[in-house]
């Protein structure tokens, strides 16, 4: 069994070597196209961390109706805390509001006016989505629907802008990745088709001596897998070069450096390799 497997793998490598010009052209095309996707994915991953840092700063100030008692204010804050999309709530009572006023303006508000006119309220932070854009508006609407809420203040325009750009980048990476994966399937499929044509003598002889379809197909699948793997490795190396180059330019203006993490690179390289395998399977099913 192992002997047969090793023989088939060696046949796959031999097949790759025999059609090396076409195979290397395919590998290079996949590698270069995928390297752009990898580079953008690495930048996106870096940006994602920046976005998450920014999201940690998203904080809404919610003001309650001025006639609420402290107990009612606690109930309203608890209701807000239970809403979908809300991560945490910090209640700010009238007394706490007065303390904040004094910290910020250096004067006790009770010395300026009769009674404490500051409203009870709370600060709200949001749950971050596992992936994709964070939509603020639905959370705002839910908070506005809670009885006792008077007003909500937040940096709406800034948050929306950050999220919109981030969402756009994700869409670009997704579209590019889809195009590269589709291209990988087509390229590998065509290369294997040529390889099948070039090795029709071997195929005929194998069938003649009793090879099963699976036995005949396996080396071509190995060949496609090799092309995908080499293309992925090339893409990883080139994308690393892109990151290093980008960091050189960034270092001229800022201390910020793009970090090259193996995680997304390995993930995308694996997906490309699997799609290459799919492309070769498609070819052998169609042409053998």
């Amino acid at each position: 069994m192992i002997d047969r497997f090793l023989y088939l793998v060696s046949e796959g490598v031999r097949s790759f070597w025999r059609s090396r010009t076409t195979a290397l052209a395919t590998t290079t095309a996949i590698g270069i196209a995928a390297s752009f996707v990898l580079f953008i994915a690495v930048v996106g991953e870096n940006l994602s961390r920046v976005i998450n840092l920014a999201r940690d700063q998203y904080e809404f100030e919610v003001f309650f109706d001025s006639d609420l008692s402290d107990n009612q204010a606690v109930e309203v804050a608890e209701k807000i805390g239970a809403l979908k999309g809300v991560r945490s709530v910090s209640l700010i009572t009238k007394d706490r509001a007065a303390e904040i006023f004094e910290q910020e303006f250096g004067e006790n508000i009770l010395d300026l006016v009769d009674g404490n006119p500051l409203p009870t309220g709370c600060t709200v932070t949001l749950e971050e989505p596992a992936q994709g854009r964070l939509y603020v508006e639905p959370v705002i609407k839910r908070i506005q629907g809670v009885t006792g809420v008077d007003e909500i203040r937040y940096q709406g325009r800034l948050i929306s802008m950050i999220e919109r750009y981030y969402e756009g980048l994700l869409a670009v990476v997704t579209a590019l990745a889809a195009a590269v994966l589709f291209g990988t399937v087509v390229l590998i499929s065509n290369t294997i088709r040529l390889s099948i044509f070039a090795r029709r003598d071997l195929i005929r002889i194998l069938k003649l001596v009793g090879a099963t379809d699976r036995f005949v197909r396996f080396p071509f699948m190995i060949e496609g897998l090799l092309e995908g793997m080499l293309g992925s490795l090339l893409a990883a190396a080139v994308s690393y070069g892109f990151v290093e180059g980008a960091n050189y330019f960034l270092s001229l203006f800022t201390h910020y450096q793009i970090e090259w993490h193996a995680g997304p690179v390995i993930l995308l390289a694996t997906v490309i390799t699997l799609f290459a395998l799919f492309g070769s399977m498609r070819a052998v099913r169609k042409f053998l």
Partner: peptide, 21 residues
């Protein structure tokens, strides 16, 4: 019907590889 890129040994060995020997 021999494979011209393989030696005599390799040509004769093909059926045995197919049988998983």
């Amino acid at each position: 019907e021999l494979l011209n890129d393989r030696t005599v040994f390799d040509n004769v060995a093909i059926p045995l590889h197919v049988q998983g020997v």
